[in-house]
Nucleic acid binder design. Structure first.
Lengths: 386, 386
DNA sequence: TTGTAGGCGTTATCAG
DNA sequence: CTGATAACGCCTACAA
């Protein structure tokens, strides 16, 4: 009696087996009667229809071979006829695999995150994976909670610009494959673009245009990405013999950019690089609102080349960071890791480049005429109201 | 022997029960020895440590009550000590619930999708759900495949601007709760903003500024959203006694907007509404590149108010559609449906409004001076290179 | 090649 | 309130 019900089912299968296979061709309509309505067909149903044992169905459908061609075909026909789809939980319970990977981005609110999401999402679809998404709102605890929740249900995890400790990341990575974007963590595969190249180009261009002192507007001071970029800026400036000062913003957003405008003016620089485009947007708005002309009086160079960078006035010069590539690259890497097909090359090389637009250019001390100044004020006001 | 192993395990629990509870306090270190390293603790382990039956652990931990306070505390201590986390697959296998819901957006590439994703994502996190995301690349088959894949692993599904048939949607909805965004489907809960209000405001503003003939640039002709918006435009124009012509774009993107510029000029209108902001961006660029002045010679009104709409020159007048609200509203609705706590109000009312910026205004036949024309050409060229 | 007999970790339904 | 036990659907030694 212990396995009574199971036995009954199997017997049932045995009985129907002949009835069905006798006809050989199996009209879909008759199949539905076996399991009409609600719950999905199981391998037991398929086995019943195909007249074989459930385990044979499992073998046939999980492509592990070891099934005769005839049986295979029979089972496949029955499966499609019943519209059978293996229950992923039952499978996961046994195999631990879900065909799902997670992506946690630092800020679900930033357009920069979106590019990463897109890259990872497209790759997921292409590789027949499901993408689980979460944002950490730039909070370490939220991020950890999200990561842990995900770890239970995914095959692997991508952390984009994470704010948690290196050790936390490594702990996660011990459990399941983890790929980090935009940050280097020892012992964990990372996809981080080579930002020095783009920054070098930017600084060189500024130097060539006669600038001698530039400011770097950092994001949150503890952000590894911001730190990395600032160091690269310093190095490039040193090489090009430019003075570089660092200004901290309250937040790495458009508003943060607006707020840092005063500091920028006070610093007396003729050019400013920002740690991301959002900051540049806000900074440029505020500077223009104050009557300054970009790039005549001050050059602005952003970072990332997010959507919209080409639409500002003037269009924003920026260091393009191929974030979509980062997303898809990380996803590809993770999936390869998962399938044991990781290329020897490992982490793909992703390179940044300067996108020269209108917001940066030659130093010119040209003062604005009163009329022009007035016009700019009006424009700025309009823009602010927008 | 049939259930031999089970019996052994249970006996094992019984044996250890005394040994452990004798000490009362249970040092974490000693617990680890029970299940060190790899695989996670199970309710059997917890039961063993707490000295109770696994089913009691299940009851205690799934908050279904019916457990004495003392036992509850004992079990919780054991669980945290062992760092126990219920295996979601095993749970799902039995309950069918995963605390995950799916979101399928029409186009992972569009900034408009992002707002929806953000809204849904934030709501998911807040309600302790995992969000599974997929894009359909505006393809019916891709969308259906994604939907089916998801259906197997989620508790419910949100379809944002889906392109599949109403019937397909209803079929999905028979299986699990489905909420549709941006489209009305009979018998399925839908979150669709009231676009007529915003459009009415836009048309009225155009009429008040002396325009008499406007064009509407549609997205893909079969897109329900585009159709709905065109109908609303027609209705409003009729009311305001404006002529309205419809122009079709190849694709609802910036490029599509550029390509439709010629048709717009040929149509001889003085104002144009586009089915989304992307189209407006491209259209404005192209028109300006051809030397036209916005809004002096032509007014442009977009739709959605996506990120970046405030950064163009002139800033884009647009009908704001609160897409993030749609995303969070749909998620909230879905989750409430899932928990049987759906409000009687049902679908939240979401309303659009005109955001008046610089790209629309009074009709003026003012011709450009040659110098001004030249300047605009240069600016447009710069913008294009950007 | 195919069938048998568990087991994966939980929940739910019974008895007690 | 607690314990025993049968599902849930699939996978996989092992046996035949």
């Amino acid at each position: 009696m212990v396995l009574g019900q199971d036995t009954i089912v199997v017997n049932g299968a045995g009985q129907r087996q002949n009835a069905v296979t006798a006809g050989q061709s199996v009209p879909a309509a008759s199949m539905n009667s076996a399991r009409n309505g609600k719950s999905n067909a199981t391998i037991y149903d398929v086995a019943m229809v195909a007249g074989v044992n459930p385990s044979t169905v499992s073998r046939a459908l999980s492509k592990s071979g070891r099934v005769s061609a005839r049986t295979q075909k029979l089972i496949e026909a029955a499966a499609t006829g019943l519209n059978f789809h293996a229950n992923p939980f039952a499978r996961a319970l046994h195999t631990g695999r879900t065909n799902t990977f997670g992506l946690i981005v630092a800020d679900l609110t930033s357009p920069a995150s979106f590019d990463i999401i897109r890259g990872a999402g497209i790759t997921a679809t292409v590789r027949n994976y499901t993408l689980a998404l979460a944002g950490s709102a730039d909070s370490t605890v939220t991020e950890l909670i999200a990561a842990r929740r995900m770890m239970a249900t995914v095959d692997g995890l991508i952390l984009a610009s994470p704010c948690m400790d290196d050790d936390d990341i490594r702990t996660l990575a011990r459990d399941k494959p983890v790929v980090v974007i935009n940050r280097e963590v020892d012992g964990v595969p990372c996809v981080v673009p080579d930002e020095s190249k783009g920054i070098r180009e930017a600084v060189r261009s500024l130097a060539a245009n006669g600038h001698t002192k530039v400011a770097f507007v950092a994001g949150p001071p503890q952000s590894p990405m911001s730190i990395r970029r600032w160091e690269a800026v310093q190095a490039s400036c040193e090489f090009s013999r430019l003075d570089a000062v660092r200004l901290d913003s309250s937040r790495p957003t458009v508003d943060g950019g607006r707020q840092v405008a005063q500091d920028v003016r006070a610093s007396g620089v003729t050019a400013v690089l920002t740690s991301n485009d959002l900051l540049a947007f806000g900074l440029m708005q505020e500077l223009q609102a104050a009557g300054m002309v970009v790039p005549d009086e001050i050059s602005i160079v952003g970072f990332d080349d997010i959507f919209g960078a080409g639409f500002t006035t003037p269009p924003l010069t920026t260091v393009r960071s191929p974030r979509e590539e980062c997303g898809s690259g990380a996803a590809t890497l993770l999936l390869d890791l998962l399938h044991g097909t990781a290329l020897s090359s490992g982490v793909p090389t992703i390179v940044t480049e300067l996108v020269q637009r209108g917001s940066s250019g030659r130093v010119s001390a040209r003062k604005m005429s009163p009329a022009r100044c007035r016009r700019h004020e009006i424009e700025a006001e309009l823009r602010r109201r927008a």
